[in-house]
Design a protein around this nucleic acid. Structure first.
Lengths: 362, 362
DNA sequence: ATTATATTTGTGTACGTACACGAAAATACA
DNA sequence: TGTATTTTCGTGTACGTACACAAATATAAT
């Protein structure tokens, strides 16, 4: 292993000078810089990241803004655990991570969490751009402060985010369409259930729906997907009533597509005979959804690898900070097709203790 | 961040003593050990792996024994790249990796490669136990030398390997069965093509076949899978003749299952009209196989995440060596279902330069 | 009690890099 | 030519841990 000392010796300069060249610091004459750079090149010298990390004075602060999770919607737990795990991995490299959470249906909490986040004086920000208008406001602040930001899970256009980490929602929906069709080659009458919330705020949901419909369109399969827009997707009497009666009035429907992570709620709402006869396809391997796969009430889930989303986001930025690796602009994660038989090998979030002391959580 | 120095100060002992306690080295009185250990406990002290790696005198050598790859069978390139990448990640932690390759159809090259491998004086070995008898011989040597070994990709029973990293082949085959059935709910006449080679040597192939058949059996779908055993799976006139005439004689066959990574060879052999009418399912996202997905000649591929297999094996051992984390005995990787629409987001091996200087390759 | 031996503890250096500080050399200005 | 200023460079210390070696203390043997 070749070291700075070796390079210095070969160039007849001091280690300090080599260090200056490596980091393009000022105070080196053009002549010696050229000399040193050539030798570095010849040996294809790479700094030892371990030693570098130990010596590094400059610390980095990555602050993360993501939705909170609760028992009825566990989706955001996985990205959170992914962030935690990555934080553990990078903390000894001088990169510290703080997580701030907001209520997914409350724009004010989004802004408040962001204000709190700013107090950590982040060098970089990872965020889930959940509300369109408020995001504009936040981004404006970040750009004034010259803080690079990365979008996680939701891919909004029109901003200068240094990367997007998440799924290609359109294609994921397209895949869902194909799976739906596979099981029902003869029929193309489906129901798509979404919430009003989703419609206004989360464009990954609408991208999925667009992809789903496009599958039939592009493959020239005539289909007539119905849409049902509910206030929320909780297991309420009202929802049960609405869904079941809709299905009763439309017996031609053979499948239900739920482009959110709440298909288990639909399962809870459905009457037994519907569960038997319908093919259900949803998103995300939350524990409740996975349970539905196992007990045969749901045919397929598409996972967007939420743990990996959190993990990758942090690692991407950390590698950028530590090793100056510019990240890919789009980091699309796989579109995982889960069914009863293969779900057990998928997406178990690697174990991380929740009171991980590498992360501040707010 | 709490350091050894802090602990030492609090316990009124020297840093050396704390170090001895942390590493359970000898030469500490029971009294002081208890005192120090309690303080370590209270602060839940963890050594800084970065500083530790830098200071560590003891180096580790992981040597890897895997099949070689060539243009017509690229499968083993991915695990190899995974090993390379992991090697790069751990080399600064004092873990060095060497790779030795053998000809997958030549037991002698297997033994020879192992003899070469031994000369690196490995502290741990990662191996693909490709030949049953020769493996026994190899393992015996390893156990005499007291070198822990890990099985990669092929899960042979009856040895004391510290872990297996790979897929659950039986379940993967089961999933393949389900996918086959999905597309052909009315018919259950299939053809399974394997090579004689596979039959004797590689039991993951037979596990896949068993799983495939069991899907129909356990779900009480009557099926009559035919088997075709070829000398090899190359695109020879002979194979074309055999396969096509078999299919002509069995027009009831609706699908072909190839439980190896060579389904693209079958595609090459098949006459055009068969390609149109048959549903093909195979394993592994090699470039050639992926191409078959994209041009619609193959319906599904099941990926065993070969890159990850290589990567994880090395990381598992390295974490064991560096941080003393005992690995899970079985590390099953996901059963990835790939089709035309989602293949592009799957399993692209992360870029690694092949002349990676973190690894010696033989 | 004295010396010898074993046990326990402390000290110092090394790992490879980052960076502050000061010394030396080069240039500017008088 | 001499001094002031800027530019260029070298030296030294720190990061947190590992481990060799030396020092100090405790135990055994005489």
């Amino acid at each position: 292993m070749i070291t700075i000392k070796d390079i210095a010796k070969e160039a007849n300069v001091s280690e300090g000078t080599v260090d200056r060249v490596i980091h393009s610091r000022s105070g080196v004459s053009k002549k010696t810089e050229a000399k040193v750079r050539k030798i570095l090149e010849r040996h294809s010298f790479k700094v030892n990241p371990v030693a570098s990390a130990l010596a590094m004075k400059k610390k980095h602060q990555i602050s993360v803004l993501i939705p909170e999770y609760n028992d009825s919607d566990l989706f955001w737990k996985s990205p959170y655990l992914g962030v935690l795990k990555a934080a553990e991995d990078v903390k000894n490299f001088g990169v510290y991570v703080s997580v701030f959470r907001f209520n997914q249906s409350d724009p004010v909490s989004y802004l408040n969490a962001f204000e709190d986040l700013l107090e950590t004086k982040p060098t970089e920000v990872i965020m889930v751009p959940n509300f369109s208008d408020e995001t504009k406001q936040i981004i404006k602040e970040l750009e004034v402060l010259n803080i690079p930001y990365l979008f996680l899970n939701i891919d909004i256009k029109g901003f200068n985010n240094i990367a997007y980490v998440g799924q290609d929602s359109y294609t994921a929906g397209y895949v869902a369409g194909k799976l739906m069709h596979l099981n029902n080659p003869e029929s193309s009458e489906f129901l798509i259930i979404q919430t009003l919330q989703n419609i206004t705020k989360n464009n990954s949901i609408s991208d999925r729906i667009e992809g789903f419909k496009d599958y039939f369109f592009k493959n020239e399969i005539k289909s007539n997907p119905r849409g049902l827009k509910l206030e929320n997707l909780n297991d309420t009497l009202e929802n049960q009533e609405v869904i079941n009666s809709f299905l009763k009035n439309h017996p031609e429907i053979k499948g239900v597509f739920v482009p959110s992570s709440r298909i288990y709620m639909v399962v809870n709402c459905l009457e037994e005979h519907h569960l038997k006869n319908l093919q259900l396809i949803g998103f995300d391997n939350t524990p409740q959804n996975t349970e539905c796969l196992i007990n045969d009430s749901v045919a397929f889930l598409i996972s967007q690898k939420p743990f990996d989303q959190g993990y990758k986001s942090v690692r991407l930025l950390a590698d950028f900070l530590i090793q100056n690796k510019t990240p890919e602009y789009k980091t699309y994660l796989p579109i995982d097709i889960l069914m009863k038989e293969n779900v057990k090998y998928n997406g178990r979030d690697e174990f991380v203790s929740e009171n991980n002391n590498a992360v501040e959580v707010f």
